[in-house]
């Protein structure tokens, strides 16, 4: 199948005070139409930087230093910046974490929903309004017709996130990058919005890059998982393969730390310590200092790749041996 987005060996470095250090390294994945890839990891693991690199929204002082970002068969980094910006704006939609900041508080809803479409072609007021109506109906905003002129503060968080999704999908993109889209919402709204995204994905054959820290959502909504730690891939695979045989101790620890309602009551399980800062990255496995299964080789040499294309892990001492 044709891939929408393929990331090859992506490396982003950050500069601070004249020194540079790698933020993410060797990130490689493909995304096909109609599929969802979940990028999972703790805060500070480079998930959002990966998304920002694809969206061209890296903060000041960060640059893509190596690798390829291929969208629709075109390598972003070799295109003239202007053309890449146009292609990106047309083919990728983006939804961010905080629905309160997703909309301009001083513009009515309908103007914001058609913003991305309006940037492409000038619409008359009438067509713009009817387009906005259609878009908002598609994301299931109730009583749309009477709410077009409302301002964002009159909407709830979940409704605002729906508006942000409508805005992201206004130009029929091939890819939607959702950076923790439901983290700020309650569980019921979260489920509604993710189900709606699923429906829209099936209708439009949309590829979704779903960034989250919540592995329980991944099992339900994603097709593939990409687990990141300290700017690197630690484990990747299809949801069925990966959840059936978790190999990397980090993925294992993430899964263990999901709170459960059933069984006997126990203290919530966490992972001791915090991810290392980019300044202190070493040659060996970066998870070694927190890993319960650490062995001598871990801190000495980079972890080897285990497994095959449908499920791979980078580990010296995995929970399960993966067939090559």
């Amino acid at each position: 199948m044709r891939t929408v987005l393929s990331i090859e060996n992506l490396k982003v470095v950050g500069y601070k005070g004249g020194r540079s250090c790698p933020i993410i390294e060797g990130i490689t994945f493909n995304l096909e139409p109609g599929r969802t890839l979940a990028v999972v990891g703790e805060s500070g693991c480079g998930k959002s930087i990966t998304a920002a690199a694809i969206l061209g929204l890296l903060p000041w002082g960060f640059t893509v230093s190596d690798g390829r970002i291929v969208l629709d068969g075109q390598n972003a980094l070799s295109l003239p910046p202007r053309e890449w910006r146009q292609l990106r704006g047309k083919r990728i939609g983006a939804v961010f974490q905080n629905p309160l900041a997703a909309l301009n508080p001083s513009l009515p809803i309908w103007k914001q929903v058609i913003e991305s479409a309006q940037l492409e072609e000038a619409l008359t007021r009438k067509t713009a309004r009817s387009r906005a109506l259609q878009l908002l109906e598609r994301v299931e905003v109730p009583h749309v017709a009477s709410r077009l002129d409302d301002y964002p503060h009159q909407f709830s968080g979940g409704m605002r996130q729906r508006v942000a999704i409508a805005l992201a999908l206004a130009r029929n993109p091939a890819l939607l990058i959702a950076d923790e889209p439901t983290t700020a919402l309650d569980l019921i709204t979260q489920a509604q919005i993710l189900n709606m995204l699923k429906r829209l994905q099936e209708e439009q054959n949309l590829a979704i890059l779903f960034i989250t820290h919540d592995l329980s959502l991944v099992a339900e909504y994603a097709d593939e998982v990409f687990v990141m730690y300290a700017g690197q891939e630690v484990e990747r695979g299809s949801v069925s393969d990966l959840f059936a045989s978790v190999a990397h101790p980090y993925t294992h620890a993430l899964l263990r730390s999901i709170p459960r309602l059933t069984g006997s009551r126990y203290r919530l399980i966490d992972i001791e310590g915090v991810p290392p800062s980019p300044h202190s990255y070493t040659r060996g496995c970066r998870f070694a200092s927190r890993c319960p299964r650490v062995i001598a080789a871990c801190s000495a040499t980079p972890p080897p790749r285990l497994g095959n294309d449908s499920h791979e892990a980078f580990c010296h001492h995995p929970h399960r041996v993966l067939a090559p």
């Binding site: 969206l55 061209g56 929204l57 990106r88 704006g89 990728i92 983006a94 961010f96 974490q97 905080n98 900041a101 997703a102 909309l103 301009n104 914001q112 913003e115 991305s116 940037l119 942000a164 805005l167 992201a168 130009r171």
Partner: peptide, 9 residues
């Protein structure tokens, strides 16, 4: 976010 989103589009 709305500024970043507009930039992206």
């Amino acid at each position: 976010d709305y500024i970043l989103a507009a930039k992206q589009y």
